[in-house]
Amino acid sequence: MLFVIMDRRTFVQTTGAVGAVGLTGLAGCLGDEGNGDDDFPSESLTWMIPWGEGGGTDTYARQMAPLMEDPLDQSIEIDNREGAGSMLGSEWLVDQDPDGYTFGTVNPPGWSFTWRAQDVDGWHPDDLEPIAHSGVFGYTIIINDSYDIETYGELRDAYADDEISGFAYQGAGSDSHLVTLLLQNEYDLNADNIVPYDGGGPVQEAVLSDEVPAGIATNTSAISAVESGEARAIVNLMDIDLTDTFPDIDPITEYGDSLAWITEFYQVQVAPPDTPEEEREILMEAVQEATEHEDTQEWEEETGNIVEFGDMDDAADQYVGSVDEIESQVDDTIGGFDEFQQQVEEAEDEEE
C-alpha cells in the first residue's frame, strides 16, 4: 500500500558546505553519459504537464524547470496538455519519440486510479519509463471562512443538522469523487448535495464565493485559499504532517482508517516507452539538482509545498504495479470499480 512506501521516503535536506559540494560534483557529471549520443541533450527539451497552468503539478514544474536548464545546458519548455483527468496528456506522451527530449509528470496513485476508472485502452501506466520524483502533495478539506467550523467532527455535525448544504469535489469519476464517497460511507459525512467541479481551481473558487461551504482541495491550492483570507484548511486527508503549514488542521485519521492510498500523490517524472536509461539518468540528475537547489528549498519553506527527490527506482516504485494495488483497495472499500462507476452514473443523472 502507498503508506508503506511513504515510510521509506527520505525528505531532501541540503545544508551548508555539504550541499554545495554535492551539487558541484553532481553538475560535473551531467551530460557525461549517453547511449551513443555523447551530446545529449543537444537541443531544447519539452516537459509535458497533463494539467492546466497554475495547478499544483504545473507550479512544481515551473519552479524546477529553470534550475534544470543550467546543468542540462538547454532550455525546457513546459507543455500543458490538460483534459480527461490527465489522460489526454499522458496518452500524448506515450506516443512521443523515445529520445529523452520529451518527458512529463504524472501523479500516482491518483493518475493510476483515473486510468483504471476511465478504462483507458491502448496503453498502460507501466509502459512509461521512470525518471525521478520531485515532490508530494495531496488532499485537504477547505471551508469558507464565514462558518464557525474548525474540525471534521464539527463539519460532519453541521451537515447532519442541515446547518450547511453542498460539498465540492474535483470531477465525476475522479479520485476525489471516490474520496467523497468514502467520506460519506465510512466517515459519516452526510452532505446532502455533493457537487463536481472541473478541477481544484474551480473547487477553490466555489468555496471562496460560498457557492458551496466546503470541498476537497490539494494542500498546494489550500495554501492560496487560506492566503486569500476567505477560506481555511480544516481537515488533512493525508498521512503527511501538514501542521507546519496549517497549525490547527484536523487529521482524518482521528475519525477512521488512513486514506493515504488515494489522497497522497507523487510528482513523478516519466518518459515515453523505450526511452534509454542513459538519457533518463541525465534527466534524473538534473531533477535532483533542482530539488536540492537553495532556491527550491526557500520556495518549499515559503509556500509549504513539499519537495522531495526520489531516484529512478523510487519513481518506478510509485506507479509500476499501482493499478493492481488501486483495484485491490477499491474492491475492499467500495465493492469494486463496477460499483464505483454505478455511483458515478447516479451522480451524473442527478446533475441532469
Rank of each mutant, 00 (worst) to 15 (best):
I234C: 03
Y319G: 04
Q288S: 01
D39E: 12
P66R: 00
D257A: 13
Q13Y: 08
H133N: 10
V120E: 11
P196R: 04
E301Q: 15
G36V: 07
P50A: 09
M312V: 14
L23Q: 11
D7W: 10
F265L: 12
G25S: 08
D314Y: 13
Q269H: 15
D99I: 15
D248C: 00
F309M: 10
D188Q: 05
I141E: 00
S146V: 03
P66S: 02
G135M: 06
G54L: 07
D70W: 13
V307R: 05
P196T: 09
I282A: 11
P213T: 02
E350I: 14
D39G: 11
Y169M: 01
P202S: 02
N305C: 10
M6N: 15
V4D: 09
E186G: 01
T275C: 10
V287S: 07
H124M: 07
E69F: 02
E294A: 09
G16W: 06
P272T: 03
G100E: 05
E298C: 08
Y147V: 03
T253F: 03
T275I: 07
L26M: 05
E278C: 12
T243E: 13
Q204M: 14
V203W: 02
M238E: 04
V179F: 02
G173E: 05
L155Q: 01
E82P: 15
R156D: 01
V268C: 03
